[in-house]
Design a protein around this nucleic acid. Structure first.
Lengths: 133, 133
DNA sequence: CTAGGTACTAGAGCGCGCTCTAGGTCAAGG
DNA sequence: CCTTGACCTAGAGCGCGCTCTAGTACCTAG
């Protein structure tokens, strides 16, 4: 049984963010309260939040996370929908990686141009104030 | 010589975004105006914007783009600084790709679990409304 | 001459994802 | 008791990156 502060600590999320996540319905269950009204989490909630962190870090919007949580909360029977959502996100992440790799190529080429310029004192390929390249 | 509409078309940026970029000082030069006060671009501006798109797509914040543009505008002599900025961004992009690949692994494993579940009708490894895994 | 389309400036507004404030409650230690 | 600190709710605010509005001007075709 964990307090909101402990969960924040364990997940890297702020207590504000945890309350926000709850308002948004991103948990897999209602988080129960203690007699004094404080949230009482359990380790499984932390595991779910850690997975959420991965999803978020990989660019999944809150709305999609919400939808996934909704599917899980609404019980068994919709696993194909959950799978479709996960596959969609997998596709999106692969696409993002591919884009980043293409962008990295461009950046690399600019880095190389500047390295040569800085090493040799030539101005080939770098920008002048009035763009010429 | 190009109008703002043509540049928007060529770069995929909106005319609003182009005016915003200009206010923010993201261009490599002052964009001149026609007699009637309309912006007059040249192809080199489009090239720069296309590179900006790459930078932005790879997660470079506007502030960093601004700084790079400032360095270029302030003329020759600061190439080592420009290089340092580019290398920093290159590092950030590589890190982001690595993170995404790690996230992708996790997503894959969830997809696999759901694929098995959906194929075989077992409930192993998927979430129940009250989280057990 | 006029209408339509495109552009202008200045500034407000928005969607996302939190983050923080205000005003209060609760539980434990001194 | 009383303070301290973690927590509560409801709701406002913020940083980013645009996006849109209002009100006006110009330019080309008919």
């Amino acid at each position: 049984m964990l307090s909101i502060g402990e969960v924040a600590e364990a997940t890297g999320l702020s207590v504000h963010a945890l309350r926000f996540f709850e308002r948004e319905g991103l948990f897999l269950r209602e988080i129960p309260r203690s007699s004094g009204g404080q949230r009482v989490y359990e380790p499984a909630d932390v595991e779910w939040l850690l997975l959420c962190n991965r999803f978020r870090a990989s660019g999944m919007p809150i709305a999609m996370l919400k939808e996934f949580a909704r599917l899980v909360r609404s019980g068994p029977g919709n696993e194909p929908e959950r799978l479709a959502l996960l596959r969609e996100h997998e596709r999106a992440v692969r696409a993002k990686i591919a884009d980043l790799e293409a962008d990295l190529e461009i950046i690399r080429s600019k880095v190389v141009v500047y390295e040569e310029h800085v090493r040799e004192g030539t101005a080939a390929g770098v920008w002048s104030p009035t763009p010429s390249r």
